[in-house]
Every structure is written in C-alpha cells, then in structure tokens.
Design a protein around this nucleic acid. Structure first.
Length: 401
DNA sequence: TCTGGGGTCCTAGGACCC
DNA sequence: TCTGGGGTCCTAGGACCC
C-alpha cells in the first residue's frame, strides 16, 4: 500500500516586520511595531521606496507588499516606516532552520522565511502530528519571540496553501479529503503560481474560484495556457508529487542589480558599477566552486523597460577579469545611450569544473586563479575592494588614458 | 517622495544542420 | 535549380515566487 505523505510548511508571519520588532524590543523599544500600523520599507531617497512587509493593522488599511511607500502613506496617514536589516533577518532565518531540522532530517528551505519539513516517516516518534505542529509553533515563539503559521498536508503544494489560510500564529491542515471544502471555495488568485496576469486571464474565461479551475477541462486550459495550463489544473486539484529535497541545491544563476538614485547615462559611472557587480557575482561563484558559461547584462530604462543581453562563452570561467571583459563588451555594443534606472549582471549556465580546452595561444594561469582566491580572502578580512587588480581600476578611471 | 532585488521556469523566434 | 521538415542550440522577454 502506498502510504500518504505528510508535509509541514512553516512560514514566518510578516517575517521582516516581525524580526525587526523582535530586534527593537530586545534593544529596549517601548513599542511592538507588530501592533501598530507599520511597514518595513526601502529608502525612498534612493528610489527603493516599496513595502517589503506590513503589520496586520497596516494590512487592514489595504496596504500591499511591493506597493510604493508613497501610496501606502496615502492609505494610512500615521503609518510608521522602518528600514530592513537583512543581516539580522539571515541570522534569525538560520536559527529557525537549525531549530526545525531537529524534527525531521528532510528540510527544504524555500526562502529566508519559509520551509518544508517531510514528516512522513516520523510516526514512530510522534503520536499526533497536529499536536506536534502546535508545539513547534509555540516553542518558536517562546524561544525567538516571533510567530509562524504551519500548514499540514499530503504534499508540498497543499501544505503551502494551508499555511496561507488565516494568520497569524495558526496551524491549519489541508489533507487530500479537505481540498474541496477548504481550497475550492477560495478565489483563483489565492492559488500558488496564479499571479495578477494569470488571474485576469482566468477571470476573463469565467474562472473565478480554485474550484472553477479544478473542474475545468484540461484541454481547454492547455489551449489557453500551454503547459502552464496543466500545472494550473493539477494545483487546483491539489496534485503535487514533488519531493522535499534537503540537499542545498546549487543555484541556477547568480545575479546582482542596482537601482540608481537618479537615472544614469554617464559611461564611467556605468562601467564602474558593472565592475563592482562582476566582482560580487564572481566572488559568489568562486565560493560555490562553480564556473559560469553564460554572462548577461540587465537594464531597466528610465521608463521601466526591461532589457537584457547575454552571451555564451566558449569556456566556463570564474575569473573576474575575464567575465568583466565580456560584460563590458556586451554592454557597450548593446547600450544606445538611453538613461538607465537599474543596471545588473547575471551569471548562469554553471559547470562544476573549469572545462576549458587550453588553446596554444590562450593564456590561462593557474596563478590567475590562485591570485583571485587570495584577493577574495583579503577583501573578506579588510573590507571589499581593498585589493583590486590595477588593470581593472585603470580602465575605469576617467583620469587615466 | 512613484515603482527593490534575487531567483526559477517557459516560450517564441532565429540560426544552423542534415 | 524555385525553396520541406525535423532537430538542436541560443537569445530575449515575460510571468511568477518571496
């Protein structure tokens, strides 16, 4: 007999806001920002002004994640805005994951504030998994001071949907025999992977609830959504066989990008930004002991158009200089002088070895590689860019050549 | 005082090969 | 001589997630 799986999905309630609240209380703040109309938001003077997290009261005012702080303030006059502290968030995240891994060896981290636990083969350890979920939830609160929601189901999709039911500080189940009563009644945009565009399209087709979607003909959905239609139908029916994977799967890409405080068309400024970004991503790449074959430049123009240009290299590499050379080349042949709002670099198509075939005329030193590693460790110790290759610096200094 | 940043996956279309 | 069709690889762009 095929035994049913049992999956937990643990999700920190308003993670950034809760974690900042915990930190403030620890530092003696008289107020708990979870109990007032408040948000975590980026710096507006740097044009990072969007809502990253909101308190339940802010939510009641209709404030949504990712909307502009400007618009959030219009909805709530006495809204309090606090800056994010990503360093602290990662600390809290690590503590939480470490604690949760005590309950099952199969833990898959989805993002900084949520994960799956596969509890399928733990019944010899725990009598009642729902009681256990309550115990975990309460223990997290007493140990760390923030609340979580826990969703319990027979697969990952339903566990995730369950943890999204009523918040905060709740445990919910969405077992296979509860899908119809608990999930089909929800509006279709509550389904995982149904965003704004898809919801609009579905509603135009007369599909308003998850139940409507579940009862649709697959071929009808495939006609309108291609292979995504199949996925939509499966999710609406609570079907998901993907396993909980606990090995840290290597990233498929590494990227950085930066929104400038004003739109930029100064070539030196842009070159310097690209250099800093290449240093960042190649350093991350070396840390993973990977080599990238594809490099890309990404641009958001002053009028919010997204553009990208990528190229596949002949040989995978992790050398800053080599990647920078290619990035700069791509950028300069592609950019038409339009003012740029956001500029970025992306590496992808990784291999775990440097599979270059050394041509007779190509110089590649093992030395280069070792020098790079030493530079990384010096910069780690004394701050970024303490050591940088002179050739790279000069190329970008408007005062030279 | 208007719109972040880091990811994944899918698709269309072009180039190229046989 | 008057233009098929399948397969693969690559790029650009878009939708979605947190």
């Amino acid at each position: 007999m095929n035994k049913e799986r049992v999956i937990f999905h643990i999700d920190v309630n308003n993670a950034f806001l809760s974690w900042t609240a915990v930190k403030m209380l620890k530092e003696g703040s008289p107020i708990d920002i979870r109990n007032i109309p408040s948000i975590i938001g980026g710096d507006e003077s740097l044009r990072h002004g969007i809502v990253l997290a909101k308190s339940p009261i802010a939510k009641k005012y209709g404030i949504k994640t990712a909307e502009t702080i400007y618009s959030a303030r219009k909805k709530c006059k006495n809204l309090k805005v606090y800056p994010p502290d990503h360093h602290y968030y990662h600390e809290m995240s690590n503590k939480l994951m470490k604690y949760l891994s005590n309950y099952s060896p199969l833990l898959e981290q989805l993002s900084v504030d949520e994960c799956f636990l596969d509890m399928s083969n733990t019944n010899y350890l725990y009598d009642n998994l729902i009681d256990l979920a309550y115990k975990i939830k309460d223990e997290i609160y007493t140990k760390y001071g923030f609340t979580v929601n826990i969703g319990i189901a027979n697969n990952k999709l339903c566990a995730k949907m369950a943890s999204d039911f009523e918040k905060p500080n709740k445990v919910h189940t969405l077992y296979n025999d509860e899908i119809e009563t608990k999930m089909w009644v929800l509006p279709v945009n509550d389904l995982f992977m149904v965003g704004k565009k898809t919801a609009e399209k579905l509603e135009m087709l007369g599909i308003n609830t998850i139940g409507d979607l579940a009862k649709c003909d697959i071929s009808f959905l495939k006609k309108h959504f291609k292979s995504f239609g199949q996925l939509l139908w499966e999710y609406a029916n609570g079907i998901d066989n993907s396993p909980v994977i606990n090995i840290e799967e290597a990233n498929k890409c590494i990227s950085v990008s930066e929104t400038f405080e004003v739109d930029v068309d100064n070539i030196n400024r842009l070159r310097n930004t690209l250099l800093e970004q290449v240093e960042k991503v190649t350093k991350a790449l070396r840390k993973e002991q990977m080599y990238a074959k594809t490099v890309a430049v990404t641009i958001k123009t002053y009028d919010f158009k997204n553009l990208s240009k990528q190229i596949k290299l002949d040989n995978a590499t992790d050398i800053t200089e080599e990647i920078y050379k290619n990035i700069l080349n791509l950028f300069e042949n592609f950019w038409d002088g339009t003012k740029i709002r956001n500029l970025g670099v992306r590496l992808s198509n990784f291999t775990d070895r440097c599979d270059r075939q050394l041509s007779l005329f190509e110089q590649y030193d093992e030395k280069d590689h070792n020098v790079q590693k030493i530079i990384d460790s010096v910069n780690d110790k004394y701050g970024k860019n303490t050591v940088m290759k002179a050739a790279l610096l000069n190329k970008n200094d408007p005062n030279i050549s």
